[in-house]
Design a protein around this nucleic acid. Structure first.
Length: 669
RNA sequence: GCGCCCAUAGCUCAAUUGGAUAGAGCAUCUGACUACGGAUCAGAAGGUUGGGGGUUCGACUCCUCCUGGGCGCGCCA
């Protein structure tokens, strides 16, 4: 079967060779990548639209509609948003804080830039962007490259650097300034920096790194969105993990977040499924192995339809019937959907994934007519070969199809309706679509169409695309197709984790629960630790690896810290001798802790949970290097207290960072 | 054919978005538990950043051509 066969498409195709089992066992060709980070779309000022402060009432009204359309185990699902009012924001607003308490790195950069601005006569906002963290520790903690200035000042950068280093004597929190190779290098006062960072983390706990940047703004995130009547495979996890992580990241930054599961529960394929079930379906098999049976029917239908065009026509007409509201058909469809949702729900529950709304494609069925009308009124649509399309040739794009010649709707039409509805409902600051790179063009067309329709908010929509999950070798080809079911990976992972625990920590009480946490940590981290535009290759031994740069490595570091704190046995002191924490061994960990808030902002801006994954690895490595060489619990009470404070802070940030990735942190493992 | 995307150590990935000597993990080899958990740590080895040309003080990063691969391109999702 050809890769890209139309029958196989879905929002999150698991693999181009999805049905490969019907053919030979040839090695699956690696599928592909995507574009770099999406262009940053600056939020437009609200202007006349206003912040829309009456969301609550609208929300309820809207949900009445939702309950009608979306039945099933979830029905409407307006999960109350936890943390809508952030703990940090709810605190006393006039708490005193030093100028760089909140975000070490940014504050230092700002401070340095202001001094530089004074000496160079340039704006500090411009200079702050060029300040960097040097690659080598011997170049200090911050550096300002003078090469840019060399051009405008017509001077040797080394000379400029030397002059600046000599001129800048006092910067708050900076201990030493030195010129080297055209750079001005800055060394921070470590004792003081540790103090600020650790006291901050100690005081704020899990909310360290939270922010108000998102206050009053809403961000809608479309993620997971699996197809009904198919098993949930590892391919679906990518969207689920990234979307869920972004959800938590944005919420931490003060945004109101709305998670939407755009289930693939509508379209011609369901007509096909119904046709297939009517022909060959078995009630017994459906109740025994529902998804497997539906999947088999679907495969068989597509196979036979290839030789028998009349069959394909039959499928289309069943979908037409479904769309027209035929009661019998609809009932069957609903039954299939319920069965699928039951399986999805189990997986989501296991992984701790949640959504605010389960608005699948079918949900928009009765909301499409007004969209089509609207586009007609704007003179954007026209008939072409019997189909209703939006011509985008002026933008070098193929047309967007609104309606087939048999009048049935299409994926794009439903996405248009969804986009408009999301805007009306949430007046989002951003609307994210965490969807595979294969749909790049689809979203370009979608956004362009909305722009042409005069919706200026279309600029707030972002396709957060990600690469393929490839299946490497023949390990899984014996199973059903070349797909690996997430359920299976989880089971294997838990099994392996249990085995490992029995070897390394046989007395652990909560074996089953901990094994689950470790397996999930490994699997989730494998999906989140690479930049999202990269393809990733699924390999059992890598996904279920607990050593090296993995989720369990971070969990292990966390568990060991927890154990250390238990041994310490006293409440952690926030006020310690910070001079004891400025040694070469301790500083890297403390500095990394100070970077955490900046990492969060960067991750949010680039829609990259992987930034957090990398940050946590660096933190754990820095801490472990220290832990391995320096005793923490000693007879020296002052030194012990100081180090324990650091441990406690590392633990806090590790746990919170893992939480943002959707991973739990065991106290023991 | 046209469009978009990708290529960094044997393998999997980083590289502060144009900055200093391109860094980690896995695998390989060597070393570290009679006080905090060895799922760890320390070290060795491993590179013409696919190739050519260009832009400039400086290129893994930007432009261009080439090679290899992937995805997409009207009644699928």
């Amino acid at each position: 079967m050809r890769a890209g066969d139309p029958h196989l498409r879905e929002r999150h195709p698991q693999h181009a060779g999805y049905f490969r089992h019907t053919g030979g066992e040839e090695k699956v060709a690696p599928a592909h990548h995507c574009r770099p980070l999406p262009r940053h779309r600056p939020a437009r000022p609200r202007g006349a639209n206003g912040p829309g402060g009456r969301g609550g009432r609208r929300g309820r009204a809207f949900n009445r509609g939702a309950s009608r359309a979306g039945q099933g185990p979830f029905g409407r699902c307006p999960v109350p948003l936890p943390g809508a009012v952030h703990r940090a924001c709810a605190r006393t607003p006039h708490r005193r804080r030093s100028h760089w308490e909140k975000n070490l790195v940014e504050s230092f950069k700002e401070e340095i830039a202001k001094k530089l601005a004074l000496k160079t006569g340039r704006g500090w906002e411009e200079l702050v962007k060029t300040i960097e963290v040097p690659p080598q520790p011997e170049f200090g903690d911050f550096a300002f490259p003078c090469h840019g200035l060399a051009k405008v000042m017509k001077k040797n950068p080394a000379v400029i650097a030397a002059e600046l280093a000599a001129a800048i004597t006092v910067v708050d929190g900076i201990k030493k300034v030195q010129a080297a190779a055209g750079y001005v290098n800055f060394w921070v006062d470590r004792s003081r920096a540790s103090r600020e960072v650790l006291k901050n983390i100690f005081g704020e706990g899990a909310s360290y790194g939270s922010s108000k940047v998102g206050e009053g703004k809403t961000i809608a995130i479309d993620y997971s969105s699996p197809n009904i009547a198919k098993h949930f495979g590892v391919g679906h996890l990518r969207s689920t993990a990234i979307g869920h992580s972004l959800y938590r990241i944005y919420r931490k930054l003060g945004y109101k977040t709305v998670g939407i599961n755009h289930l693939g529960d509508w379209g011609t394929q369901f007509g096909q499924l119904i046709a297939a079930f009517k022909k060959w379906g078995s009630e017994e098999k459906l109740s025994e192995v529902p998804i497997t049976h539906l999947f088999e029917l679907y495969v068989r239908f597509n196979k036979e339809a290839k030789e028998n065009p009349a069959l394909a026509e039959e499928g289309r007409s069943w979908f037409k019937k479904l769309e027209n509201g035929d009661a019998e058909t609809r009932k069957l469809w609903q039954h299939f959907k319920d069965l699928s949702l039951k399986e999805f729900e189990r997986i989501y529950r296991a992984l701790g994934i949640s959504f605010d709304y389960y608005w699948g494609e079918s949900f928009y069925n009765d909301k499409i007519e007004r969209v089509i009308k609207l586009l007609e009124e704007k003179k954007l649509s026209r008939l072409s070969e019997g189909a209703l399309v939006v011509d985008l040739s002026a933008y070098d794009m193929p047309p967007l199809l609104l309606r087939k010649k048999d009048e049935a709707t299409l994926y794009s039409t439903r996405d248009l309706a969804a986009a408009i509805l999301r805007w009306e409902q949430f007046q989002f600051d951003r609307s994210l679509y965490v969807v595979n790179v294969a749909q790049d063009l689809h979203f370009k067309q979608l956004f362009k169409t909305l722009e042409l329709a005069g919706f200026d908010w279309s600029s707030r929509m972002v396709h957060v695309s990600f690469g393929w999950v490839k299946f490497g070798d023949a390990v899984m080809s014996t199973r059903e197709g070349n797909i690996v079911f997430l359920k299976e990976v989880l089971e294997k992972g838990i099994e392996l984790a249990e085995k490992t625990i029995r070897e390394k920590n046989p007395d652990l009480k909560d074996l089953e629960k901990t094994a689950r946490m470790i397996a999930e940590g490994a699997i989730m981290f494998a999906d989140l630790s690479t930049r999202r535009h990269k393809d990733i290759t699924f390999r059992w031994e890598e996904v279920l690896n607990f050593e090296g740069e993995t989720g369990p490595y971070l969990q292990y570091t966390h568990a060991r810290l927890a154990s250390l704190l238990r041994k310490y046995g006293k409440p952690v002191k926030g006020e310690v001798n910070f001079d004891l924490l400025s040694s070469e061994r301790v500083w890297p960990a403390a500095r990394q802790l100070g970077n955490f808030p900046s990492t969060l902002l960067a991750a949010a801006e680039a829609y990259e949970p992987s930034f957090i994954a990398t940050h946590l690895l660096d933190l754990a490595k820095a801490f472990n290097a220290f832990y391995q060489t320096e005793r923490i619990l000693t007879d020296d009470a002052a030194a012990t207290d100081a180090r324990i404070l650091l441990c406690s802070c590392v633990k806090t940030v590790l746990k919170e960072g893992l939480y943002l990735l959707g991973i739990e942190s065991p106290e023991e493992m």
